[in-house]
Nucleic acid binder design. Structure first.
Length: 720
DNA sequence: GCGATCAGGT
DNA sequence: CACACCTGATCGC
């Protein structure tokens, strides 16, 4: 929960995400996203009065946030005072001090935060230096390096202070499974249930908050089943979401809510009241998204955990993990860092102690060799012109630890491998191979911490005895699909997918993909396209014929069978087809050690998810602004829901893009957002569905293994 | 009647 | 563990 007071040291006359107390006197307001704990005071009468008197005061936010905010009548009074700023489009704002008449210009850039739809970080550039307010964010490792606007030329900008979302800035939360992993886990669980029969339905027990939309859209897209929600008018101008949700209760995936959903569920009713179809009772399982985390040395992660006869928990996080936070901050290396959140059980000091070593000032102190130059540079940031946009690289390159940006469309080049930037080059290499997602960067900066072992709670739910069993099984076989079944049970029905990911050290000298393949593997999409078409179920044995399952809900202890197939194959049907027989009521999906497993996961269906995930990213972060056309124009989009992904890869030179974007200043001047034509500037963003970094916490296969994988792939062999 | 705050719930 | 809420009780205006 954010404890940020609303104001930054450098620009105390701006208020962000807080609108009460001293913030009532701010010259401009900023809202990073539409969660209540960031909107304190936003509809208070005192602020309303202030607005009435100070006509020049505006609220700046992303177009999506504006839309979501104004959907609620309680915020309607803001309507004429909100300025929606395009994401990744620097805008100049003129601030007027009403008392003194002083004017000051500041440039603000909204950067996608990956927290919920419309969520952004604010990058401010002005007389008092460049500062970044992250709001709440979830960014995978390496994503900061991909943000053009955090860079000047190829170097990361000089940032004075970062106001950071430190929700999970505690070593206990060392790792949280990536979005893709979580999504895939949930997808497979839902898929395997709802394909049993049309009476099998899933209830997603989501909190009343924005942020689950990408889950809904992906499930809907993958399974062709819309998600039932209570309300969808807030998405009326967001076709990509609107298309995948519905208020028609006759669907197999529900995310509707009711104050007493528990009672409903107990009565085998969905919160919306649905209880049967054609007189046949529904078979409901509930899936509760929850944050699960894993310590540094925790080897596996269960992404889905069964907590009761028909209840599951699924890993899901809106916030960056400890290692993601450190990766982010360590890349930016500001002079100062200020936590926005003090994780419970921790103190602000403790958090700062963790973060300070990742700051510039720290390296200056501890590494004297940087001192003269860093000092020089820092003083420069403070000067009036501020932005050191790529001018003098004379010193900088040498002085500050050079942190290279990872070009977005970087395919074959090897990045410089300086010590300082080694993680980043790893990142880019992983991007190289992004198309099959075999690897990612190593765990950067592995620091000592108190291992929380397999922790991750689920306690508060019903039965949780199962967990122990799973933990054992997972430990048993790290890299293959496990199918657990209980020989003592005659029937099975509930299934549990626990996707696990394993950790592995990375290795410096990896074989290069290019050696094995021509470079026409462009996108994950392509690869999916190849493999995806026919009922992919067949080849991997994941057909979902309902009759493979009986309808009883027995819990069971489990034996396991290890399948050589990728996680993909862990389907109910497979159990059936393998004659595994009905006992297999628990399925453990394990992602294989090398991400060879991930690869097949991808190809055999997972890739669709990847695409969709980026789809989410694009939506929520608007990195692909063309998607937001309707929204930008703020026109209603009557049913014309074309969710089709237009504008794929826009190839471009990353450097050029950087330069380009930097020149793209849009003046706002406290008027209505006059973004001339956002569409035109678009290419600088050039993000595509395929630029999402590969699984952030995936691991690098060992070279020999990778070599082998490449070879097989190139030969068209199936990878196990 | 409203908002703010707190406790308690999911 | 934690999130981002919601509800309900209480207090003050």
């Amino acid at each position: 929960m954010s404890s940020f007071g609303g104001r930054m040291r450098e620009y105390p006359w701006l208020s962000i995400d807080r609108f009460d107390r001293e913030n009532l006197r701010a010259r401009a307001y900023f809202l990073s996203h539409c969660h209540k704990d960031h909107m304190k005071g936003l509809r208070a009468p005192s602020l309303k009065r202030r607005l009435e008197c100070s006509l020049k005061v505006h609220l700046y936010c992303s177009p999506v946030t504006k839309e979501l905010l104004l959907t609620s009548p309680k915020y309607k009074f803001w309507e004429n005072r909100i300025v929606a700023l395009e994401v990744e489009t620097p805008a100049q704002i003129s601030l007027l001090d009403e008392a003194s008449g002083e004017k000051e210009d500041i440039v603000v850039t909204l950067l996608p935060a990956g927290h919920c739809p419309g969520s952004v970080m604010f990058l401010f550039q002005g007389q008092n230096g460049t500062v970044l307010y992250t709001g709440d964010f979830r960014l995978a490792k390496g994503e900061a390096a991909r943000m053009e606007l955090l860079h000047s030329g190829t170097r990361v900008k000089d940032i004075q202070s970062v106001y950071l979302d430190t929700t999970f800035c505690d070593p206990r939360f060392y790792q949280i499974p990536s979005r893709e992993e979580c999504l895939n886990g949930i997808l497979e669980l839902v898929r395997s249930w709802i394909t049993l029969s049309r009476y099998h339905v899933v209830w997603l027990n989501c909190k009343a908050a924005y942020g689950y939309e990408y889950l809904f859209t992906n499930l809907s897209e993958e399974l062709g089943v819309k998600v039932h929600v209570n309300k969808l008018d807030m998405f009326k101008n967001m076709p990509e979401i609107l298309y995948h949700v519905t208020t028609d209760r006759h669907t197999q995936i529900h995310a509707c809510r009711h104050p007493r959903d528990d009672d409903y569920l107990r009565g085998n009713r969905l919160p919306c009241g649905m209880t049967s179809r054609n007189g046949t009772p529904l078979r409901i399982i509930s899936v509760k998204p929850s944050t699960m985390w894993f310590g540094e040395r925790t080897r596996k992660t269960n992404i889905i955990v069964r907590t009761g006869e028909s209840s599951y928990r699924a890993c899901f996080s809106f916030h960056s993990s400890y290692s993601e936070i450190k990766d982010f901050l360590g890349y930016i290396r500001p002079v100062n860092v200020y936590p926005n959140v003090v994780p419970v059980g921790s103190t602000a000091d403790e958090v700062v102690k963790i973060l300070k070593p990742l700051c510039k000032s720290y390296s200056i102190n501890s590494e004297p060799k940087y001192k003269p130059l860093g000092t020089l540079k820092r003083s420069r940031t403070m000067d009036l012109t501020d932005t050191d946009e790529g001018s003098d690289d004379l010193f900088d390159t040498e002085l500050t630890p050079v942190r290279h940006k990872i070009p977005k469309h970087h395919v074959e080049t090897t990045l410089p491998e300086t010590k300082a930037s080694s993680e980043n080059s790893e990142g880019s290499r992983s991007e190289n191979m992004g198309s099959y997602k075999a690897t990612t960067m190593p765990m950067t900066s592995q620091v000592d911490f108190i291992d929380c072992e397999e922790s991750n709670g689920e306690d508060d739910d019903e039965e949780s005895e199962k967990n122990t069993v799973w933990a054992q099984v997972v430990a048993h076989n790290p890299d293959s699909t496990l199918i657990l079944g209980n020989p003592n049970e005659e029937v099975h029905s509930d299934l549990t997918c626990a996707l696990t990911s394993s950790q592995q050290e990375s290795n410096a000298d990896m074989p290069q993909w290019d050696v094995f393949f021509k470079r026409d593997i462009k996108t994950t999409d392509d690869s999916s396209e190849n493999e995806d078409h026919p009922p992919s179920s067949i080849d991997v044995g994941r057909s979902q014929s309902p009759n493979l399952f009986s309808d009883s809900d027995s819990l069971s202890d489990s034996t396991h069978i290890s399948s050589q197939n990728s996680s993909q194959s862990t389907h109910i049907s497979e159990q059936g087809s393998q004659g595994l027989d009905s006992q297999a009521d628990t399925v453990l999906i394990t992602s294989q050690q090398t991400h060879g497993a991930d690869f097949s996961f991808l190809n055999k269906g997972g890739s669709r998810v990847t695409v969709s995930v980026s789809h989410f990213m694009a939506m929520d972060n608007q990195t692909e602004s063309h998607r937001w056309k309707p929204l930008e124009q703020n026109k209603p989009c009557p049913g014309n829901i074309d969710s089709d992904l237009k504008g794929k890869n826009q190839e471009m030179n990353a450097e050029a893009g950087a330069a380009q974007t930097q020149n793209m200043l849009i003046e706002v001047n406290n008027e209505k957002s006059k973004t001339p034509n956002p569409e035109l500037e678009r290419d600088s963003q050039s993000s595509s569905d395929f630029e999402i970094p590969s699984t952030p916490d995936a691991e690098l296969p060992r070279p020999d293994k990778l070599h082998c994988l490449y070879k097989k792939l190139a030969a068209g062999e199936t990878i196990y």
